[in-house]
């Protein structure tokens, strides 16, 4: 009985050690298989990095062509649907360029050198910087119809926030409140794109339009108050002259002038509120068009330049790493 038990024990131990050894051997084989070889660095050097650079070159020209074609088509047809249809060939050209660029980046990212301690991080940073640019450009294209629609007169999304002459400020406020009903949802959609240039613009625009509504409300309120207060002043002035005419007591006169003074103080308070709001309303209206055009005039070029700078550094570093590996291996 005891002998049998001991035999089992030793067999168990044997099995456990065997499993460990087998696992170690398999792990070793896996590690060896994933170990980058010279041919992997050679592939990066000879074709894979060049293919990323070449496919990248296609992105900006196809993007510009799509933006120009879409804009021209929209101006000609005045409809988002027809413009998208007409610009479809150039959209597809961009889309093809994007697929090719992403595939080239993925080939580099999947290169076995990713498992090397020093080359791995250079490779991942290279791939990420390139992919970030592709994503940014892709977002510019995908949400371009949404962006251009914001102030397009035919779409009537936000274009009506620029209110012309009105008979009074109450009417201006009312018109503005109507004009924003389609504007805010359109801006929210653009915000949801989470695009690095469109989304911050849409937030800025929304914030400013909300401020415009506040200012319009304060000016309309001041206008109402002003009418009421001026008639109040007139009534007091009448009372004062009446009281003077009938030789009223000094006490009564003093009371009346004090009340008149407080009405005048309220007028000037209301007046300063009005001045502040109307000035800010005007400057916000003036700011809106440049805020919109700055997206493509300033922000996009600056972002592209920054993305490019980073890509240049990542490319130089990876190339240096590959060169170093190839020279030290070939020694």
């Amino acid at each position: 009985m005891a002998a049998w038990l001991n035999r089992r024990k030793s067999m168990m131990l044997f099995a456990v050690v065997g499993v460990f050894v087998a696992a170690a051997v398999i792990a070793g084989i896996v590690v060896l298989l994933n170990q980058p070889r010279e041919s992997d660095y050679q592939a990066l050097n000879d074709s894979q990095l060049k293919s990323v650079a070449q496919t990248r070159k296609e992105l900006i020209p196809t993007l510009n062509k799509y933006l120009a074609d879409y804009k021209a088509a929209y101006n000609a047809t005045g409809s988002i649907q027809s413009a998208s249809d007409r610009a479809k060939p150039s959209y597809e050209a961009f889309s093809k360029a994007r697929t090719a660029a992403t595939a080239a980046i993925k080939t580099v990212a999947d290169n076995r050198t990713a498992n090397d301690a020093s080359a791995g991080s250079a490779l991942a940073l290279f791939a990420d910087a390139h992919q970030a640019e592709v994503d940014y450009l892709s977002g510019l294209v995908e949400d371009y119809p949404r962006y251009t629609a914001i102030f397009a007169r035919k779409e009537k999304l936000c274009s009506d926030i620029f209110i012309g002459e009105t008979s009074d400020l109450a009417e201006r406020q009312q018109k503005l409140d109507q004009a924003v009903t389609d504007c805010y949802p359109a801006l929210t959609k653009l915000q949801q794109s989470a695009h690095a240039s469109y989304a911050p613009y849409a937030h800025k625009a929304e914030r400013r339009i909300k401020k415009m509504q506040e200012y319009a409300a304060s000016t309309a309120k001041a206008e109402r108050e002003f009418t009421a207060l001026t008639s109040e002043v007139e009534a007091y002035q009448k009372k004062v002259s009446e009281a003077t005419a009938r030789n009223a007591s000094e006490q009564e006169l003093n009371k009346l002038t004090a009340e008149l003074k407080s009405v005048n103080a309220r007028i000037s308070e209301s007046r300063t509120g009005f001045d502040f709001a109307s000035k800010r309303y005007l400057s916000t209206v003036k700011e809106m068009p440049s805020l919109y055009s700055d997206v493509y005039d300033k922000d996009v070029p600056a972002k592209l330049k920054n993305l490019s700078k980073l890509i240049d550094v990542r490319t130089q570093v990876l190339q240096l790493v590959v060169d170093d590996k190839l020279t030290s291996k070939g020694e």
């Binding site: 700078k309 980073l310 550094v313 240096l320 060169d323 170093d324 020279t327």
Partner: peptide, 21 residues
């Protein structure tokens, strides 16, 4: 020495990434 020299150039180049970031 050559490898260390290459690593030196790599590190110096990679420092340029801070500016755009």
């Amino acid at each position: 020495f050559a490898h260390l020299n290459n690593q030196r150039v790599i590190l110096d180049t990679s420092m340029n990434a801070y500016d755009p970031l």
